[in-house]
Simulated scan of single mutants.
Amino acid sequence: MVLVALALSGWALWRQGAGVQLALGLLALAYVSPLCALSAGLLSARTVHHLVIVFGAAPLLAGALKIGRVPLVPALLCHLGVFWLWHLPAAYELALSNDAAYWAGQIALLASAVLLWRALGQDDQSPTTVFFVIAAMVMQMGMLGAVLTFAPGALYAPHYLTTARYGIGVLADQQMAGLLMWVGSLPLTVAAAWPPLARVARQARIELAG
């Protein structure tokens, strides 16, 4: 089913440009490569999976697809809500035990991230707003990463019995996931946000020169 959906999407969107093609490649990496299977057993792999979607495929799709104007603050709140909801232990367990819940979460994560990056890329955003939103993204990723890193026990029951086959304890896997999210979110956020950051810098130079 996933292969069919990706194939149909690729056929329909291939002519949209290199950005869409690269985004589809990243989605294939996330959903039909060994990374997807590994993410079912390791929370740390699931973190990489989410980073690929949110900071790889989503900004590429946001820049390449024809999407209308998106209000920035609602887009940010929507994405933060989706991100935190699906990382709650109960919701996470539901997603790994129910295919419909899993794909609902994945679609919501990708769609909310695409809308957020689209909102960030709009030409009329003020520098203050752009930096606020980027800082909020880094903070929320950092907060969740800190929770995973410093929690005294394992939070996600689906991984209690899955990490041993990879030679790692469940708590160590969770701590690795937290570090990946905590440390990896900053450079990835800056890289994905570089176009709006560059635009803001150009606007500032023009205003100073004027």
Rank of each mutant, 00 (worst) to 15 (best):
G142C: 11
P196V: 03
V2E: 11
M139L: 15
A30N: 01
P89C: 06
L115Y: 01
G178E: 14
G63V: 02
I168H: 02
A146M: 08
L24S: 06
T189Q: 12
A90Y: 00
A177I: 05
T129F: 00
Q21P: 06
A75N: 03
V20L: 06
R199H: 13
W14D: 12
A62H: 08
A23H: 02
G169C: 04
L161H: 10
A135H: 08
Y102H: 13
V82K: 04
L161S: 14
A57L: 05
G167N: 04
L115A: 14
A172V: 10
L42H: 01
L51H: 09
L65I: 00
L42V: 04
L3T: 14
L13E: 00
L197D: 06
A146S: 10
L38A: 15
G10H: 01
Q174P: 04
V147A: 11
A113C: 05
V133L: 12
V70L: 11
T163V: 05
F132A: 13
R165K: 12
G63K: 11
L27V: 06
L171Y: 03
F132E: 05
C78L: 15
L88S: 13
L155C: 05
A111R: 08
N98V: 03
S126E: 13
A12E: 10
L115V: 00
A90W: 03
L85C: 11
